[in-house]
Amino acid sequence: MKKWKREISINAPIEFVWPFIYGDLEKKKLIFPKVIAEEIIVHKEEVVGSLINQTYQNGSYIEQYELTILKYTNESNYKALQESFLLNDRFRMTTEYEIESQSNMTTKFIYTSINKPKNILLNIFQLFGNDEVIMRFMNRTKETIETAYEEEQNR
């Protein structure tokens, strides 16, 4: 099992940041450009336990994952979403997105990813992994949201 946890500060209010993580597919696509569609399979009133079929495109290859929402918090100063899915029938992925209001104009974004291989051999390969992909994702998220917020402010 490999776990990464990183945080970054985003210069935008928490309510502006949240739809990029949950609830607005068009905004979500801006930080997850390979996600092309989502369909709710099972909707739970409390959100936890809901199932979402997510379609993902990597080059010409299209895959679908069934995401299970394990955690959902939507408070004024703290919001969180934790999802789990099986990646390529090889890894059980659990991702968590937490945002916390630091001020009216700043939001702390915490991303946690846990990769649990189904095969013990894959566990060995994970030892050589680094967080480069995670950091690119964090930086892209920060830049995308800050640019969108700045554009909205200038309208």
Rank of each mutant, 00 (worst) to 15 (best):
M1R: 02
K2L: 07
K2F: 02
W4H: 06
E7Y: 11
E7L: 08
E7N: 15
I8L: 13
S9Y: 08
I10Y: 07
A12Q: 10
E15N: 14
F16Y: 10
F16H: 08
I21K: 04
I21N: 06
I21G: 03
G23E: 06
L25T: 10
K29E: 03
K29P: 02
I31H: 10
P33A: 02
P33Y: 04
I41N: 05
E45F: 01
E46R: 13
V47H: 07
V48E: 15
S50G: 10
Q57R: 14
Q57M: 06
Q57P: 03
N58P: 01
Y61N: 14
Q64H: 12
Y65S: 12
L67V: 03
L70F: 03
K71N: 07
Y72Q: 02
T73C: 00
S76G: 00
S76M: 02
N77R: 09
Y78G: 01
K79Q: 09
L81Y: 05
Q82D: 02
F85V: 02
L86E: 04
L87K: 10
L87N: 05
N88W: 06
N88A: 08
D89Y: 08
F91E: 00
R92V: 04
R92Q: 12
M93T: 11
T95M: 11
T95L: 12
E96G: 08
Y97Q: 07
S101R: 15
S101N: 05
Q102I: 14
N104Q: 14
T106C: 09
I110K: 14
S113P: 00
K116P: 00
P117S: 01
P117K: 01
P117R: 02
N119V: 09
L121E: 02
L121M: 08
I124W: 13
I124G: 11
L127T: 06
L127G: 12
N130Q: 06
E132D: 15
I134Y: 09
T141A: 12
T141Q: 07
K142L: 04
E143L: 14
I145L: 05
N154W: 09
